[in-house]
Every structure is written in C-alpha cells, then in structure tokens.
C-alpha cells in the first residue's frame, strides 16, 4: 500500500489547479456582458431597487473582494443564488445532477462494451474482414455529429417505431434506463470509435510485444497469451485514454441533453446562458470541472493499481 500513499498529498498538489479552476469560472462569469440585475428587474426598475439588489448579491464590491467572498462561500457549499429560479444555485444543480450523471455513466458503460467487443474482434482478426469492418465503423463513427444522429434516432426509433420515448427522463429506474437509452447510445457512438481504435492498436501492439512472444516460446496457446499477457498490458493505456476522453463525453452530454430535452445540467447550462443566469452557469461549470478532477484522481488510482512500475 506504500504506492498508494500519493493519495494523502495529492489534494495538496491539486490545490493550484482547483484555485485556477475557481478563478477561471469567476473571471469568466463576472465579465459577462449586460447587467444581470437590470435584466432581472426589467427596464423600468428604480435605481434604489437596482442598488439594493446589487448589494444583496454582493455585486457592488471590487472584483478581488468578490472573488474572496466567492471562495469563502464555496467552502461553505454556497454557490450563490440563481436569479431566474430565485433559489440557491446548489439546490437547482442538485435537482438536475442525477439525470446528467446517470447519462454519463450509461454512455460510459455502453462505449466500453462497444469498444472492448469491437477492438477484441478486430485485433484477433487483424487484416481480415472483421477488422476492416470495425475500422470502417470507427472512421464513420468519428465523423458523425451526435446531435444530428440523435435527431435521426428520435425520428426512426421513437416517432416512427415508437420503441423509445421522444424526450424526458422517466419516473422509475427502469423508466430512466428506457428514456436514457437513445441519448446514451448517441453519446457512446461518438466516443466508442476513439476507444475502439486505440484499444485495437494497443492490443495488436501487445500481441506482437516481446513478452508475448516469450510467453508463446514457453508453450502458451494464443488464447492464453491473449488473456494472461495481452489484456492486462492493454488495460492501462485504455484506462488513461478513457480518463482523457471523459471530458469529451461530458461535453457530448451537454449537447445531447438539449436534443433529447433531458432535465439535466447540460440543458440547464445552455438555457442559463440565454437567460444570463450567470451564477448558475458558474455553478455548473464548476461542478463539471470538479468531476474531471475527480475522474483524474480515479485514473491515477487505477494506474497505480494496474501497473506495478508506476510510482506517483
């Protein structure tokens, strides 16, 4: 467990990044054009009312002070108030968290299933028909715009055939899985080609690696070599790739939520931009960034667990 000791000091090391993330979100949102208070109160609001509201939200302080307040509140779990929803940002986000994370996890599982199946198929039949088919799927899949694919799937499978709901999130767990299947599939089809391609290349590389050759020279069959030596060595780069691509997957859900009208964070974020609800935009951006930071930490742990050479 010596090697997992980095978990103790990793938060310290992440501090600059976390501060940077909060600073970027803060600066971004404070430089938004238009006065949100005027937007909120309408053009005929009296100056005193505007001033009072500004004071209420702390907007009359200088920027560095506002940032410190922002940090202080953040530590207390207070992300400010949503101007449109007239409720704490934290609560608004908490309500929308589940659909988004369920969609991310769902899409992740589907992409991993697709990628491992296709990559294994292609790698073990390198240069043959199955391989060409998988590579064709990858090239095509990379160029598919997710939002358009989503629309087509809705048209075909939901409107024409009625197999899946057109939009929404459902009420029960089963309902969630049913409602989210098409959106998750859409996101997965965008991510799976990247994963498949890399996993295929890694598997082929490992199948030709010296240590695999040595294992064959000791009398292991091709299947044993694949299971015992190729797969364990291919896992590590795949996990790292997955970590890097999770950012893309999250980005994908933002668009897809809008296509399928899923009441999640992505849809909320796009909507808040048009209503200039900047506290909300800020909160959501932060939540997503923290997710990435957490994912990176998980990838680190997995890397150390999977590769005895790595010391962090």
């Amino acid at each position: 467990m010596e090697r997992f000791r980095f978990l103790i000091w990793r938060p310290v090391q992440m501090l600059p990044v976390l501060l940077g993330v909060t600073l970027v979100t803060f600066v971004l949102v404070r430089s938004l054009p238009g006065d949100p208070v005027r937007v909120l109160l309408g053009p005929r609001a009296r100056p005193e009312m505007i001033a009072a509201t500004r004071h209420q939200f702390g907007l009359d302080e200088p920027l560095p002070v506002q940032y410190l307040f922002f940090l202080k509140n953040l530590l207390a779990g207070d992300l400010g108030r949503s101007i449109m929803y007239r409720a704490p940002v934290f609560e608004v986000i908490a309500e929308r968290l589940a659909p988004t994370f369920l969609l991310i996890a769902y899409a992740l599982v589907l992409s991993i299933l697709l990628a491992t199946t296709f990559a294994t198929l292609a790698a073990r039949n390198e240069g043959r028909f199955a391989d060409h088919l998988v590579r064709g799927f990858c090239t095509a899949g990379l160029g598919l715009p997710g939002f358009w694919l989503g629309i087509l799937l809705i048209m075909l499978l939901s409107v024409r055939l009625g197999w899946f709901p057109v939009s929404g999130y459902g009420e029960t767990w089963l309902g969630h899985l049913h409602h989210l299947f098409l959106p998750a599939l859409t996101v997965a089809i965008a991510l799976a080609p990247v994963l498949t391609r890399n996993l295929r290349a890694t598997l082929i590389e490992q199948m030709g690696a010296d240590h695999a050759q040595a294992a064959r020279s000791r009398g292991l069959t091709e299947g044993e070599v694949f299971r015992r030596h190729v797969v364990p060595n291919a896992l590590l780069p795949t996990v790292n790739l997955l970590g890097v691509n999770l950012g893309w997957l999250i980005g994908g859900t933002v668009v897809i939520e809008s296509v399928f009208s899923i009441p999640g964070l992505g849809q909320l974020m796009v909507a808040s931009i048009f209503t200039r609800d900047y506290m909300l935009v800020q909160g959501i951006t932060l939540v997503f960034a923290l997710t990435i930071v957490a994912v990176n930490l998980t990838v680190d742990v997995l890397t150390v667990a999977l590769d005895p050479r790595v010391v962090l």
Binding site: L28, V254, I284, A289, I292
Partner: peptide, 14 residues
C-alpha cells in the same frame, strides 16, 4: 480540468 465543450460554451456565453 474543464470539459472541453463546457469551457468553450462558457467563453461563448461571455
């Protein structure tokens, strides 16, 4: 540390 698209959208919002 930001999802690519989220940060792009946030900047476009500004």
């Amino acid at each position: 540390a930001f999802p690519f698209l989220v940060l792009v959208i946030a900047i476009i919002a500004v």
